[in-house]
Design a binder for these strands. Structure first.
Lengths: 213, 213
DNA sequence: GTAGTAAGATAGTGCTGGTATCCACACTCC
DNA sequence: GGAGTGTGGATACCAGCACTATCTTACTAC
């Protein structure tokens, strides 16, 4: 298939496809002549993954490069690929202040939930510490080890189920694509469901308390 | 306190404070002279909420207007304020295509989990339907009622606990601020924890399966 | 009085994520 | 074999967003 068909199939403007090609996010098609190149299904899938990461995950285009690199590294075990992808997704360009106390809290929580095999340089670990100090900084929004452990247990439950539901019959590259898009899209799904749940339970208690009414 | 002190206290550049004042996100201070105005603690708190929504929640500045409108409406019950805030947070400017089948799936899930008191015009409900059709559109990432119900049950557990932990002794405006920032920041916390959990469990199974290695 | 800062208004900036245009040529269809 | 469409490749341009800088007028603390 030619570029324009590729753009059609993935429902992405042609100009954008060209842009992604320029940025090296999409491998060049197989050149079949001076002004001709062929693209295949892998390009369509790649394009869809990129679009989901951009539009649902909010990942900046420049960071997509790192995702692509991780996806294409055949040497890496799958969980390390996902680690790199998670790093990119959670990356925040801003402040790099460190709060050692918050990091201690995070490590205590991770130990409690039994995740003892995480890379210490994980962006997520640091990001978590940043969030914890944000919560503890101004007012009484206490992010204690107990409360965080509650969230960690809930997250463990969700993550375990997700991994157990994986389809191990497909080939590696497709498994990875499923993992990445699943992680991003179901992440949003959970987020939205949690907000709906908060509304429901707030409505539930609002008849019992004078303040919430 | 004067503007510059307000900016200091909330750790926001003075120019940005002025910008937020211009945009009506921050109520004007009490004018004490032609070129003089006084700000207080409520301004500091408001500013911190705005910053968290912007930087952690990724809410665009223009949408913040709707959030402050909801926060300032004394008539609204708390769960409705949170509903409006959730709408703003989940809003996506893009495509407004509708997939009736996906909406049916969503409603079935919401019924199963017992959230029968949601406003039908909720942005979250529509957003969920969009996510479901994204998942079902291309490949085999099936978002069935069963799988979504699993997520909904997990979200229900988290949301119920959050609501039960609320501190009902503080006054309304502070409760609301806690709710909003908590919803946004703990949302990120959960997201990050889930990613870490996925990595842990992927590493766990990767020794057992040839594909994941 | 005078130095320093406030408030308020307006204009400009840097970054991101694309679009648009152009070109010289090749393929397709009559 | 000629017309018309479409290609790969390069470069220029653009809109939106979140600020940021500058300027003016005037108050206030020393």
């Amino acid at each position: 298939m030619l570029v324009s068909e590729l753009a059609d199939r993935a429902d992405v403007p042609l100009a954008t496809v060209k842009y992604y090609l320029r940025e090296g996010l999409l491998p060049a098609g197989e050149t079949t002549g001076p002004r001709r190149a062929e693209y295949d299904e892998t390009h369509v899938r790649r394009l869809r993954v990129l679009r989901l990461l951009r539009e649902v995950g909010g990942v900046p285009v420049t960071s997509l490069r790192q995702v692509v690199d991780a996806l294409e590294d055949e040497e890496l075990p799958i969980h390390e690929v996902m680690g790199l992808v998670a790093d990119v997704i959670s990356e925040e360009p801003e402040s790099e202040f460190h709060d050692p106390a918050a990091l201690d809290v995070v490590d205590e929580v991770l130990a409690r939930v039994g995740w003892d095999d995480l890379r210490p340089e994980s962006v997520d670990r640091r990001r978590l510490a940043t969030l914890v100090s944000l919560l503890n900084a101004p007012g009484p929004l206490a992010a204690t080890v107990e409360i965080l452990s509650f969230y960690a247990k809930a997250a463990d439950h969700v993550a375990r189920t997700e991994v157990d539901l994986l389809d191990h019959t497909v080939e590696r590259s497709q498994l990875l694509e499923q993992l990445v898009t699943g992680s991003v899209v179901y992440g949003q799904v959970f987020q939205v469901l949690r907000q709906l749940g908060e509304q429901h339970h707030l409505a539930r208690v609002s008849s019992a308390s004078p303040v919430t009414r």
